[in-house]
């Protein structure tokens, strides 16, 4: 069995953060650990890999659960620390 075929299993076991964007109005964040900062312009979420930052305007949290939430509003920028770390390495 090839390595890419087992990636979904890796996601499950390691609880890697997953960010799904629907246009620029809605962003689903799964597997987050906590809310570091929450304002109408910036939302920062703690994840296993680091901090996921979402910038925009009129940002709100909806469908807030312990492991997933949806960020709504006019989303301008999303920063993913894991990707940055990979790029830096």
């Amino acid at each position: 069995m090839s390595a890419p075929a087992l990636e979904w299993l890796c996601d499950l076991s390691e609880r890697t953060p997953r960010v799904t964007s629907i246009g620029n109005r809605s962003l689903l964040v799964e597997n987050y650990h906590g809310i570091r900062e929450f304002t109408a312009e910036r939302i920062a979420l703690d994840t296993r890999c680091g901090c996921v930052e979402v910038c925009g305007s009129g940002l709100t949290l909806s469908q807030v659960r312990r492991d997933a939430l949806v960020i709504e509003g006019s989303i301008r920028d999303v920063k993913l620390p894991c990707a940055e770390a990979e790029h830096e390495s």
Binding site: G34, F38, T39, L59, T60, L61, S62, V64, R65, R66
Partner: peptide, 15 residues
Amino acid sequence: QRALREGARFARVRR
């Protein structure tokens, strides 16, 4: 975060 840990769920949170 504390409320979520205690089992709460929120439909919407706004500043």
